[in-house]
Write a protein that binds this DNA or RNA. Structure first.
Length: 487
DNA sequence: ATGTAC
């Protein structure tokens, strides 16, 4: 597909929201809604992501609108930063492209009782210890080995499986989206090949935009919610951004092959074959849903094991147990997943399949799926930014339920393609540049650092500004990076 | 995102 600029209509329809009308493209069942500032629209128009928003609006059973967040950019079939809800009772479909290749890519935040002054003279040692303990990079195997039977059990149970083996504590589950266990995951719908890839990679970081960062709370925007989350100024935290590694990739790939003939078989047309999908209640759809849920449970396990290794490293560097260092999990969110959820649409309660691809659930105070500890304030939302500037902690709000199926942004969003960023980095020492900005960075590949350099991303502060102003979630705390390990 | 082309 062409990646040229988008020149179609974007009609301003309210706070930070722009509409692609159904008249833009044949077959659109609903309009497109893109949340962005006027200034950001210029960046957003640079690739075909808005056209992908329009393509998604043609999917059978789609409800209300094809929605995109301010960190939108081009992706496989669906844009990254997209939200699509389908109703199975209206022929609604499930689509692997609406979840992404990295099923349950997501973010976990681990708190400590350390402050900036406690770590600032230990950052080099800390980052080195993290880098030499936690495997990074594509294809890397980890220290935890599971045989195929164990790997399938792990996919069925989620992090409880590894916690039962001493790798974490039960209260970690209370602080994970869906308690780290998506019901209906069936490991037997996952191919042997996918299981084989997953068996040796649980507890590894991967490559691309995945990272593990030591961060400091740089600013607090909502003191009451920050207190409820146990966050305060100058506190040290660890942010973990990773997904389901080769296992999720293989589940996605396997399903795309099985979906190839679905448009003919079930009688619908797609404007782009990368939108491959199947009715929720079809054999192909049911198999993908069962496998995708199992891969999601694996993703939660991967971040659990990454967290546990970070706890061990801190304990080693600071000579105290991780419990004594207060290394408790704030929360863990998935930002590449499809889930069956109840939403109110035109006054009626409906169970819909919400696809979030590079988009984060942001449920408000009082929602039954928000853990009890946060029920009074809303769900913690974790937004990873780029490695030079910032990341954010937000809280879910009612506006998200009203406008975006309980969803907000997932990160900064790329502003440059990987190849453009790579070319831009030739001859530079990006780790040295980061050091001048106060960030110790270690990566297993020089190219990785160039592709992920700060200016390859939009300013995450701007992205967060849009979702705050549009009431899709609210600012709680801004985090500044001190040290990072990457693939 | 991904043993970046079984």
């Amino acid at each position: 597909m062409s990646k040229g600029a988008f020149t179609g209509p974007l009609e301003h329809i309210g706070c930070c929201c722009h509409r692609i009308p159904t008249s833009y493209k044949a077959g659109m069942r609903v309009p497109g809604h893109i949340y962005a500032s006027d200034a950001m629209l210029e960046t957003i128009r640079k690739d075909q992501a808005p056209d992908q928003v329009a393509n998604v609006a043609t999917l059978p059973g789609i409800q209300v609108a094809s929605i995109a967040m301010p960190d939108i950019h081009w992706g496989y079939g669906f844009c990254i930063g997209g939200v699509c809800a389908t109703d199975p009772e209206e022929g609604g479909v499930i689509s692997p492209g609406g979840v992404g290749y990295d099923i349950n890519c997501g973010v976990r935040l681990l708190k400590t009782n350390l402050y900036l002054d406690d770590v600032k003279h230990h950052m080099r040692e800390l980052v080195k210890a993290l880098f030499y303990t936690i495997p990074t990079g594509a294809g890397r195997a980890g220290r935890y080995k599971f045989n195929p039977v164990e790997t399938r059990r792990l996919m069925g149970e989620g992090p409880r499986f590894v916690i039962d083996r001493g790798l974490g504590v039960a209260r970690d589950l209370d602080h994970t989206e869906a308690n780290g266990h998506i019901d209906g995951g069936d490991p037997h719908q996952v191919s042997d090949h996918a299981v084989k890839r997953g068996a040796e990679q649980c507890g590894t970081l991967g490559s691309g935009n995945h990272f593990l960062e030591v961060q400091v709370v740089d600013s607090v925007f909502d003191a009451d919610v920050a207190r409820a989350f146990g966050l305060e100024l100058n506190q040290i935290c660890v942010m973990i951004h990773s997904g389901s590694r080769g296992l999720g990739y293989q589940v996605c790939d396997d399903s795309l092959a099985s979906f190839r003939n679905c448009p003919v078989k079930y009688g619908f047309e797609l404007p782009d074959r990368q939108l491959a999908c199947a009715p929720v209640d079809s054999p192909e759809g049911r198999k993908y849903i069962a496998a995708m849920r199992a891969a999601a449970n694996y993703g939660f396990c991967n971040r659990q094991l990454l967290m546990q290794q970070a706890r061990e490293v801190f304990a080693g560097v600071f000579g105290r147990s991780w419990e004594d260092l207060g290394m408790e999990q704030l929360y863990d969110v998935a930002h590449n997943i499809a889930k069956l959820e109840e939403h109110t649409i035109e006054g009626k309660k409906k169970k819909v399949w919400v696809h979030r691809k590079g988009a984060t659930r942001a449920f408000p105070a009082g929602h039954p799926e928000v853990p009890e500890a946060f029920r009074a304030v809303g769900q913690p939302v974790i937004i990873p930014g780029d490695m030079g500037r910032a990341s954010w902690i937000l809280v879910g709000s009612q506006g998200a339920m009203d406008k975006t199926f309980g969803t907000t942004c997932h990160g900064a969003g790329r502003a440059m393609s990987r190849t453009a960023a790579l070319k831009d980095g030739v001859g530079r020492k990006i780790d040295k540049e980061l050091e001048h900005r106060g960030v110790i960075a270690m990566a297993s590949s020089r190219n990785g650092l160039a592709e992920e350099q700060p200016k390859a991303y939009k300013n995450v502060d701007d992205v967060v500004g849009v979702v705050h102003d549009a009431d899709l979630s609210r600012r709680v705390a801004r985090m500044r990076p001190l040290g990072v390990i990457k693939g």
